[in-house]
C-alpha cells in the first residue's frame, strides 16, 4: 500500500472538518476525492503534504522514497509570477534533466513559451506549468487540488487530457480533489466521496478501460457510474 490514512480527524477550533477518515491508496493509483464545498477535501491534501501538521490520526506513506508535489487550486498560487516559465520549472535546482524538461514542456505545448512570464500565459497554461513541473521532478506522489476549477470547459477538457496522458505515461500515485464528477470519472481508479460532516460517504471503484479519451463519456458504463455518484449526491442533499 502506498498511502494509508487511519482515523484522520481535524478541527479548526470548534469546527470539525474531518471526522475519523480511513482510506488506502495503492502505488500508481489515481484516486479522486469529491464532495461539497467545505467538506474538508483541501484539508486532506494540506495534512498529507505536511503543510498542516495539526491533526489526529495517522498518515503513513514512504516519505523517504516518495517525491511529493502539490498543485493548488489557483494557478497563481503554484507558480512565481516574477519568474519565467523555465525558471519556474527549475527553481533552485541545477541538476534537473534538461531533456526531460524539454520533453514534458513540448508535450504540453509550453516549450515555445519557456522564456515567457506567467502573466503572458492563459490560466490553463499556468495550471499546466504547475502540473508539468511535478512530472519533470519525477514526483511519484501528486496532490492536485481542483486544478481545473478556474478554467472554462474547453480549456479544462484540454488540460485534463494532458494530465491523463502524463499520468498514463509516468504512473505516479495521484490524489485529485475535485467537485467535477466527469473529471473524477475520466481520470480515476477510485473515487472517494466525502459527506458534509467530514466522513467518507462512499468509495466507488472505477473499472473503465484506459486510455480514457473524451468519447468514453458517451459510453454506457461511464453513464452508469455517473448516475451512481449522482444518486449518492442526491441522497446527501436530502439528508
Amino acid at each position: 500500500m502506498f498511502l494509508d490514512i487511519q482515523n484522520l480527524s481535524k478541527n479548526y477550533r470548534t469546527l470539525k472538518v474531518l471526522n475519523n477518515i480511513n482510506f488506502k491508496i495503492k502505488k500508481g493509483e489515481f484516486v479522486s476525492i469529491i464532495g461539497a464545498n467545505g467538506c474538508g477535501k483541501t484539508t486532506i491534501l494540506n495534512l498529507i503534504s505536511g503543510l498542516d501538521k495539526d491533526y489526529k490520526g495517522k498518515i503513513n506513506y514512504d516519505k523517504k522514497n516518495s517525491k511529493l508535489a502539490y498543485v493548488f487550486q489557483n494557478s497563481n498560487d503554484s507558480i512565481l509570477p516574477w519568474k519565467k516559465v523555465i525558471e519556474n520549472i527549475k527553481l533552485d535546482k541545477k541538476n534537473l534533466n534538461e531533456n526531460k524538461i524539454q520533453n514534458v514542456l513540448k508535450e504540453v505545448n509550453l516549450w515555445k513559451f519557456r522564456n515567457n512570464y506567467p502573466y503572458q500565459l492563459s490560466g490553463g497554461m499556468k495550471q499546466l506549468l504547475a502540473i508539468s513541473r511535478a512530472f519533470i521532478y519525477n514526483c511519484n506522489f501528486l496532490l492536485l487540488d481542483e486544478p481545473f476549477s478556474s478554467l472554462d470547459y474547453h480549456m479544462a477538457s484540454k488540460i485534463r487530457d494532458k494530465l491523463r496522458k502524463l499520468y498514463e505515461e509516468n504512473k505516479p500515485t495521484i490524489l485529485f480533489v475535485s467537485h467535477n464528477i466527469d473529471d473524477a470519472l475520466l481520470l480515476s481508479d477510485k473515487i472517494i466521496m466525502l459527506s458534509k460532516d467530514g466522513k467518507i460517504k462512499a468509495v466507488v471503484n472505477i473499472s473503465l478501460p484506459r486510455p480514457r479519451t473524451f468519447s468514453i463519456m458517451l459510453s454506457k458504463r461511464f453513464i452508469e457510474y455517473k448516475n451512481k455518484i449522482l444518486g449518492l449526491i442526491k441522497n446527501e442533499i436530502k439528508q
Binding site: S49, L68, Y70, F72, N74, D77, I79, L80, L91
Partner: peptide
C-alpha cells in the same frame, strides 16, 4: 501559497 510551493 508561494511559500508552501517552495516548501513542497
Amino acid at each position: 501559497s508561494h511559500l508552501k510551493m517552495a516548501k513542497v
